[in-house]
Design a protein around this nucleic acid. Structure first.
Length: 417
RNA sequence: GGUGGAGUCGCGUAGUGGCCGAGCGCGCACGCCUCGAAAGCGUGUGACGGUGCAAGCCGUCCGUGGGUUCAAAUCCCACCUCCACCGCCA
């Protein structure tokens, strides 16, 4: 949810943000109308309640003769209050619905336009020249590192087993990410993958992402697609002390995604799967520090990418592709030789106060509680194995292991079939 | 899964229909006292919404949501959470 004061005071700023996203300004005007409607309903109910209170007080001090008339008056007021409160409840609900319908106001500088209108900030590393590159599944199968056939047998399409060095490589990658995060001052977290509806709603994943989310009907729980959900919920409803700087968490979790509507896309290998593992950075910060923190998150992602020695580019995601919560988003895309293109391996979002307002996470400024900002960013995921295996493949089908990962695969420099 | 108990203003508690528009203690803040401090004394003490330039004023909040009543922390119903014991179990 965006800051209501911002819409009231600078509606054109919000309308401009909608335009940059390629969306209509109608929800903004609907929000303004709902806000006015609610305030009117609140003051009406307040006034009636005040009258009822004094009438009610008069009931017990009234003389026996006056009593019936006063009681009658109080009953009428009671009914009026009940009606006014119902109106207020309806107005509250209408405001909330209108409020939720407006996505975050984009950060100044975010490129306008749709998915294709991203701006490339930089390209890092050298694209390897590989004669007839094998794709990661081919490599993984030769190394007995990835088994999608049995994944399908056991769980269906888009499931896989990581076996032997494949499993070790993933554990190593995640461990490397966690170690880096902890060294940078993050608190290591292993988070629940199942969360209740209030948290899932609060983080906004039941909006446009709803079809992507697994739901456990019998228990009314949701499987999370990222530890961001649990980490955002971690401090829900709390007032934090951020006087010593941002609260930084690094969450390790398995992530579950239904991948509804992606039939036929990336069906081969482990690029797009229903279950994977991820180390995610999540930060609660003073909104005044959010921009700087966002760039720090990007820098930590790039530090990890440097450790696994794959070429990548950094893109500034266009406004229309930000999702409802993010004000700005930077993706790192690693080079995938078999596809001769870049594929997303990290994504870092500055959600400003949008997510925190929903979850009611605040911090104190001059003793007063204020909504804080939240940010998130990827430090490593199973998908990274695609880039690692493909970029480091050697002509004979073996794979050079980046130095940083060698300790996790028994110290070997090259994985051979 | 079963049975019993409990959820009150940061913490601990009082409170069984109107005097609770929530008391007391602790903690905290400020002031007095003091060379300084402790003790003592006094004052204050949260959140949300509305309104106002502001000081302030008004309203809401006693786990959550309903209900009864002119009036609910208090009575009724449902749910949630915690504690204890029993059963089952990786």
């Amino acid at each position: 949810m965006i800051d209501l004061r911002l819409v009231r005071d600078q509606p054109d700023l919000v309308r401009a943000s909608q335009a940059a996203r390629g969306e209509s300004a109608d929800p903004v005007d609907a929000l303004l109308a709902a806000d006015r409607g609610r305030r009117a309903a609140v003051s009406r109910a307040d006034d009636l309640r005040g009258e009822l209170k004094s009438a009610s007080g008069a009931v017990r001090t009234a003389s026996p003769q006056e009593r019936p008339a006063i009681l009658e008056r109080a009953k009428e007021l009671s009914a009026a209050v009940k009606a006014a409160e119902a109106d207020q409840t309806a107005a509250d609900a209408a405001l909330r619905a209108a409020h939720l319908a407006v996505p975050n106001v984009i950060e100044d500088g975010a490129p306008p336009g749709g998915e294709a209108d991203f701006v490339t900030i930089r390209e890092v590393g050298t694209i390897p020249t590989i004669e007839a590159p094998l794709d990661h599944l081919e490599i993984g199968e030769r190394l007995h590192a990835i088994d999608t056939e049995r994944g399908v047998k056991v769980s269906g399409a888009r499931f896989y087993f990581l076996t032997g060095v494949g499993a070790l490589l993933e554990l190593g990658l995640l461990q490397l990410a966690m170690s880096q995060a902890v060294a940078a001052g993050f608190t290591a977290m292993i988070t629940p993958s199942l969360v209740g509806p209030h948290i899932m709603e609060g983080t906004g994943f039941l909006g446009s992402h709803a079809p992507e989310v697994y739901r456990l009907e019998a228990d009314d729980l949701y499987l999370t697609g990222t530890s961001e959900v649990a980490l955002a919920g971690y401090h829900a409803g709390e007032v934090l002390d951020l006087s010593a700087g941002p609260k930084r968490y690094a969450g390790w979790s398995s992530c579950y995604r239904r991948e509804a509507g992606s039939y036929g896309k990336d069906t081969r290998g482990i690029i797009r799967v229903h279950q994977f593992n991820k180390v995610e950075m999540f930060v609660y910060a003073d909104p005044a520090d959010a921009c700087e923190e966002h760039l720090r998150l990007l820098a930590w992602e790039e530090e990890m990418l440097a450790k696994v020695e794959v070429p990548y580019r950094v893109i500034d995601v266009a406004a229309g592709d930000l999702g409802s919560s993010a004000a700005r988003k930077y993706d790192c895309e690693a080079w995938v030789p078999s596809q001769q293109t870049y594929r997303e391996v990290t994504s870092t979002s500055n959600c400003t106060t949008y997510q925190a307002r929903r979850l009611d996470v605040r911090h104190r400024v001059d003793g007063r509680p204020q909504t804080c900002a939240t940010l998130n960013g990827t430090l490593a995921t199973t998908r990274w194995l695609v880039a690692i295996l493909e970029n480091h493949q050697l002509p004979d089908g073996s794979v050079r292991v980046p130095a940083a990962l060698r300790p996790y695969v028994g110290g070997v420099e090259v994985l051979s079939p």
